[in-house]
Structures are given as C-alpha cells and as structure tokens.
Design a protein around this nucleic acid. Structure first.
Lengths: 147, 147
DNA sequence: ATCGTTGCAAACGGTTTGCAATTCG
DNA sequence: CGAATTGCAAACCGTTTGCAACGAT
C-alpha cells in the first residue's frame, strides 16, 4: 500500500475542499524531481518553457499552499534569499551551504536536536520548528580558496 | 584603555579610507541603544523624526557597511523578514523567536557549537558562520495559547 | 452549475541606484 | 580642495492582489 506524494497531495486537497489542477501537479512534480534549491523564479522559468501559459502567481500560490500543508519547506541561501525543498519521505535535516558553489549538504545530528529541546525546556519555550544553517566552503571550494 | 564601539568604528573607517559622518554615527548609536530587532524601516522612522533630512538609502548603505565590517548581524524573524543587531562586546549567540509576541531570547550552547565543528570536519566543510533559530512560543505565549 | 483556480497586469514593499549637491578630512 | 557621502526620486526585484475568464467536481 504505497502512498505516493501525488496521492497524499490529492487527499490533502480533497480534505480541504480544494482542487487538483494540472499546474499544482506539475509544480509538485518539479519539486520532487529537483532535489533542492528550487526558487520560485526557476520553477516558473523551467515549467513555463513547456506550458507557456503558466503564470508566476500560480507558482507562488502553489508554493504557499504546499508550505502551509507542510509538504515543502524553505531553505536559506548565503545571500539572504531562499528556495524550497520538498519534505516527502525525508527525515528532518539541516543544511551546510557552500558560499562559493552554492551546494547544499544536508546533515542531521540527534544530539543537537536533543540539546535544542533541552534549551527550550530551560526557558519554558515551546519549540515549533527551527532553522539551522552552517555557511562556509565545501571540500572542493575550500581547496580552491587556499591562497 | 577602553575602546568604545564608536572608536572602533572610527578606526575601521579610517583604515578603509572612509569617512565618519553624523548619519553613520547616529545609526550606529541607534543600534547600540536598541537591543535587537531593529529593522531598516524602524531605524529610518525613528531617526528621521529627529533629523528630517536623513534618507532611507543611507540607512541601508550604513547597515551594509556595518555588516561587511562585522559590527552588526542579521536576525531572522518568523515571517521570513529580518532585522539587525549589533555585535559589540557580545559573544556569539543564537536565537529563540516567539512566533506570537516576537520576543527574541538569546542562547548559547558550547556543545552545539562543538558538534557543528565536528560535523563540518566530517564533511571537510570549512564553516564561516551559521544561523540557528528556534521558532516557537515563549513561556507566556505558550500559556495563553493553551486551548 | 458551482465555486475554486488561473493568467494577467497592476500594485506592492523592501532595497538599490544614478546623480547633483554636500560634507569630511 | 578632492574624494567620499548624502538625499532624492526613479528603478528594481521578488511577491501579492483584483479581476474576469476558465476548469474541476
């Protein structure tokens, strides 16, 4: 009994009284294909190449919808801008972002997660979500950057 | 031999062949006064109340200058916007941001810092800086939010 | 048929730039 | 004095919105 992202999305829409349109489907599938760093503009450019009538507004609207539903999340870039990544069948993770080649490396560390909960508890703070991004240079770019 | 932020700033400017203007001084002093969550717009509004000729562009230009120099840093808000905080005589810290009252609680955890370095090393990633923000509800807002 | 959804273009908010006038050193 | 800096307004970019046409159920 496999539940594909598409099916999950469809069920979500149905439950909310919303409709499954071809635009929503193609944006979802774009996100599933592209591992990460999909920006609204890139999604728009790539998809409107096939389907010339797709509008920028729909990309934004669908991204919000998916974000509200918890199917996609934001990822920060070093310059302060951001992109999106889907969260289907992917455990929570944080990011190391290369300031040179823009590559994104995912990491998880259970100890850090545990410490965050502990710190929150100390302050009687109720954590809902977090972002944790390490900016720096990946292995390759570190080598190149050596003076 | 005390070195005030003002003096440090002045020396930095001098070293770069830049000038110390009254606008730059007043923006720096604003940031020193306001603990945190200063947004460009708020800085502009508050300061231009006294000095009606101050321009928005100068606020942005000065903020960039201070950021490049490492005297101020960005702080993310829950809605994706951001503000600035000065970094004079304040050790590195991360943030817990209340999604309701917007309050920012600072925290530091040496173990987390150490783990970050360790993870970076594993990937042969050279960390330059990081952001780590926990979003949730502060003690007071957690209580209010109980259904 | 109904109501959600779309594309469009105009509006938006935050940030940036070009330029002539000003100010610091 | 000369170079850096400023204020202004226009330009810019990413995102949002109002609206009439369209499409899914």
């Amino acid at each position: 009994m496999k539940t594909s992202p598409q099916k999950v999305f469809q069920q979500y829409l149905e439950a909310q009284g919303l409709k499954l349109t071809k635009q929503r489907t193609s944006i979802l599938e774009y996100l599933l294909r592209a591992q990460n760093h999909s920006t609204p503009e890139r999604i728009y450019r790539d998809l409107s190449a096939q389907d010339a009538t797709l509008g920028r507004a729909t990309v934004f609207r669908t991204l919000h919808l998916l974000e509200r539903a918890g199917f996609v999340g934001k990822i920060l870039f070093a310059d302060g801008s951001h992109g999106y990544e889907h969260k289907f069948a992917r455990p929570h993770h944080d990011h190391m972002v290369c300031v040179d080649c823009k590559q994104v490396i995912e990491f998880t560390n259970p100890t850090i997660e545990k410490l965050q909960d502990q710190i929150s508890r100390e302050f009687q703070f109720t954590p809902l979500w977090h972002t944790h991004e390490i900016f720096g240079r990946c292995r390759k770019c570190s080598q190149k950057a050596v003076v």
